[in-house]
């Protein structure tokens, strides 16, 4: 049936999207920052002036200069190069973790909310229990037994954020389930699969997009914190949190080795946060922002 002929529909061109962005400068900044970081993650490693593991002990703790624009660290490694390469790490680890949480949380929320009953009750109680343990603590304990590695950090992020995604999806499903268009579908004998994926799911998407972007910003936060505590990705990986953690010892002598990675983390997290807030305003215009 679907033809692309919508009569006099409202224009939803990319132009109007840009117009919306202009009204919320913070959102625009957020989108730009995220875009730049993704760009850096893609081309960063190839434009890095030095290999990120190259140690030059003669140049250790060198302040920013023309040669090393962000200076060097305690092993004489070029901080700029490490940050460029590290961006790929951050986005990949936090991104895959988020993706995993969103996928599993979505499925859990969809089925649990739609089926209801005992299954829903059990699933949601379990989610409540996981949520009653502070995420960083749970992440620490899990990584403690799995051992710190990039893959394990992804798994931890993915596991930790499932309950939150599932809760959001479920509450949207519960609301949609009682809408009359779903009831009309039931009255014409649609199969559960159709109702779930064709009637309900498209209406969950905007909520999911907002939730995913928010989870992503928390994931970056979490991954960085784990790195800082030495429980995440291990040296000599150029993980930003890890760089900050290692730099603490040298902080008094060379402030730059701390400021640049810390600044990169701050910029990215805040950028994603702004973007997520903007997505909420654009996709879910009804509600006021809500953490």
């Amino acid at each position: 049936m679907a033809k692309d002929n919508r009569g006099n529909s409202k224009p939803s061109s990319p132009f109007s999207f840009l117009k919306k962005l202009r009204r919320y400068p913070a959102t625009a900044i957020g989108f730009i920052i995220v875009f730049l970081f993704i760009l850096i993650a893609i081309i960063g490693p190839s434009i890095a002036p030095y290999p990120y593991t190259e140690q030059k002990l003669s140049e250790r703790l060198a302040p920013p200069s023309e040669e090393h624009i962000f200076g060097t660290d305690q092993y004489g490694r070029d901080i700029f190069s490490r940050i460029l390469v590290g961006s790929r790490d951050v986005l990949l680890v936090a991104g895959s973790g988020t993706a995993m949480a969103v996928m599993l949380g979505l499925l859990l929320g969809l089925f649990s909310g739609y089926r209801g009953g005992l299954l829903d009750e059990i699933v949601m109680r379990l989610m409540d229990v996981i949520l009653s343990i502070p995420p960083l603590l749970l992440a620490m304990v899990i990584l403690f037994s799995l051992g710190p590695s990039r893959l394990n950090v992804i798994i931890v992020v993915g596991f930790l954020y499932i309950p939150m995604v599932a809760r959001v999806v479920r509450s949207v499903v519960l609301d949609l389930k009682t809408r009359q268009f779903v009831e009309a579908a039931r009255m014409r004998g649609e199969k559960s699969g159709y109702i779930l994926f064709r009637e309900i799911f498209p209406n969950v998407l905007p909520h999911l997009a907002v939730e995913a972007s928010m989870r992503f910003s928390y994931a970056i936060f979490l991954v960085a914190s784990l790195g800082f505590l030495g429980l995440g990705v291990q040296p000599p990986s150029p993980d930003w949190g890890l760089m900050v953690g290692e730099a603490r010892t040298w902080f008094h002598q060379a402030r730059w080795i701390l400021l640049f990675p810390a600044g990169a983390i701050a910029l990215l997290v805040v950028g994603v946060g702004f973007m997520s807030d903007g997505l909420r305003r654009m996709l879910l215009p009804g509600g006021v922002s809500d953490v």
Binding site: M1, A2, R6, R179, Q180, F181, A184, A185, R188, E190, E199, P202, N203
Partner: peptide, 15 residues
Amino acid sequence: ASLNPQHQAGVSVAR
């Protein structure tokens, strides 16, 4: 609430 906001009117009638 009667019509699915993501479906064209014709789809609702065709199902």
